[in-house]
Design a protein around this nucleic acid. Structure first.
Lengths: 232, 232
DNA sequence: GCATCCAACAACGTATACATTAACAGATGC
DNA sequence: GCATCTGTTAATGTATACGTTGTTGGATGC
């Protein structure tokens, strides 16, 4: 759990190959460009990204600790594949951390200005469902909402942890996006949380958020079971 | 957040220098052998542990993501120094995660056998306060209790996160150990949590644990303020 | 005397070389 | 024909070499 972006955009600093490899590799994993469970060699990535094995190894270590891949000694790395049990773990963690983040934020009594990114995300989610639904846009706004909230809570450790498990679940969310019912209720819940924060109603904000996560977890579990998905 | 011990005791496996460096360095940091905020060079550690810079760098990356040190580009690493604000963050995270862990454990209705390590820790805490108090023994038992609980909750991600922030706060706990009142109430609270788990009373277990953490946080904050501690 | 500039050096970031290990294939013995 | 053993090979883990960067100390100019 590093608290800052891993030395990424340190302006002016000489750009480090390690950071570039890390960023690109992470993006490719999140974009599902490697099948879950895939075995990859250091030299493959090194060749693909025009770097030597050294920065690649360093990126592997970072990504392993973020739970996106697993270093298999003497055999390169295996891209993480989430089991239904992993999804349960992730949702349990989020059901614990996210309501806390909301609570901390609401207790600060932030003004509209500070919540601008949340408001924008809410607007974007609602807009994405008007007329022809744009699920991809909705998912982006949903993600933006949750990550903004994590960042705004005033606890960098909490934020880093939320973002970490969120990333782990990213591929699963994208996969189930089109399998779940239109996220109308979810969108409404986001708006309700936002209102509660603005009203400074700490307890209500926490409640709604917890229910939101709980419902989301149930929905996802149902989809996974219904489709008999074992790993993703 | 790696879920397993970082390839440490993979029996039979050829021992990796990286793991040895990682383990020793981590232990030395937790033992406060480096002053908080200390700047250390790769070559110093390499010489001290009879390894080359390569495994040292890898260990640095792991420890940075655990929040025990910070890699300062071109300047080696700086051992983390906790500010009062950091302590607030850590306690907020623990107040969120640990009650969840207790809840998950209690909901499983575990038998006495499964809770043996918790029972032993409770006994040890009580024993440490009988007669001449042995604060070090008490602290060890306290730590054992909390870490056992994390491991028993059935969620590896949750457990890893708890252990991570717990490690971050380790030095601060050791420092304040002799400055706080005799942890009689804390010991009683542990026993009460254990009883609640055995009784399968999920809600009560969560409540007690949350209150326990809250009180601990207040106590620590008070000590920090009273002594005007800025970094540790 | 003080600020500035330059040069030497020290440490890092990356590439590469070397040692080690595990898998695989071919050969050998039964 | 099948199992086993061994030599080869490929990929990792570690050490080292090299280029780059940031710092420090001294000399120079005002």
């Amino acid at each position: 759990m590093d608290l800052d972006q891993p030395q990424a955009a340190a302006t002016g600093r000489a750009p480090r190959s390690t950071d570039a490899v890390y960023a690109r590799l992470k993006q490719q994993i999140l974009d599902n460009r490697y099948p879950p469970g895939a075995q990859i060699l250091e030299s493959e990535i090194a060749a693909e990204l025009n770097a030597s094995r050294t920065p690649v190894r360093e990126a592997f270590v970072r990504l392993q600790q973020e739970g996106l891949l697993e270093i298999v000694p003497r055999h390169g790395v295996r891209i993480s594949a989430l089991s239904p049990d992993d999804m349960r773990e992730i949702y349990e963690v989020l059901m614990s951390l996210e309501p806390t983040a909301v609570e901390l934020l609401a207790a600060r009594r932030p003004g509209r200005a500070e919540l601008e990114s949340l408001i924008a995300s809410c607007d974007a989610m609602e807009a994405a469902l008007e007329g022809e639904p744009d699920l991809q846009a909705w998912a982006n706004a949903d993600e933006a909402f949750h990550l903004s909230l994590a960042k705004l809570c005033g606890n960098r450790r909490l934020a880093a942890m939320i973002m970490q498990v969120w990333d782990q679940a990213h591929r699963a969310r994208m996969f189930t996006l089109s399998l779940r019912p239109l996220p109308v209720q979810s969108t409404a819940e986001h708006r309700a949380v936002l209102e509660a924060i603005l009203a400074g109603d700490v307890e209500r904000a926490r409640e709604i958020y917890h229910a939101h996560r709980k419902r989301g977890g149930r929905e996802l579990t149902a989809i996974i079971e219904r489709h008999g998905i074992q790993r993703l």
